[in-house]
Amino acid sequence: MGEKNVFGVVVLVMAYGLAVTTFITAQVPALIPSTCNGYEPLLFQCVPYLVIDSSNPPTARCCDGARVGFQRANNYEAIINLCSCLVNVAPYLNFALANLVSLPAACNIPLSFSMDQCIYG
């Protein structure tokens, strides 16, 4: 009888976790401003490096996404959009600003602008 209760609680916790995860995933696009259009690979593929642990190098998938995002910043307006995007979403996605600044160097991506100025102004 006790095993049934434990199993019921486990199922309930799993269902709650799924509901919360689905809700959060559905809400993330609403937090992303229009200046971020096209920079989604940079934003989402680098979450483990930008949020969780920057002591490890970024993954190849992160660097691919970062490369796509940084290549889009190929003129003054696009650079302003990228910087605005990163500064605006960093608090909502819990990005560490220092990790954002170090990302291009960590992925060996040369930039035509300063990430330090982009993030810190």
Rank of each mutant, 00 (worst) to 15 (best):
M1F: 05
N5P: 03
G8D: 12
G8S: 13
M14W: 13
L18M: 11
V20M: 09
V20R: 15
F23S: 07
T25Q: 14
Q27D: 02
Q27L: 06
Q27I: 04
P29T: 04
A30T: 15
L31W: 12
I32C: 00
C36D: 07
G38T: 12
G38S: 10
G38D: 12
G38A: 14
E40T: 15
F44E: 13
V47T: 15
P48K: 02
L50R: 02
V51Q: 06
V51L: 04
D53Q: 11
S55F: 06
P57A: 11
A60Q: 13
A60S: 14
R61L: 13
D64G: 10
A66H: 01
A66L: 03
G69C: 03
G69M: 02
F70P: 02
A73N: 04
Y76F: 06
E77A: 15
E77L: 15
A78L: 09
A78E: 05
L82N: 05
C85T: 07
C85K: 02
L86R: 01
V89D: 05
V89S: 03
Y92Q: 11
L93E: 13
A96G: 08
L97C: 04
A98K: 07
N99L: 09
N99A: 14
L100H: 01
V101K: 00
S102E: 14
L103I: 10
L103A: 07
P104V: 02
P104L: 00
P104D: 05
A106P: 06
C107Q: 02
L111D: 02
S114G: 13
Q117R: 06
C118L: 02
C118W: 01
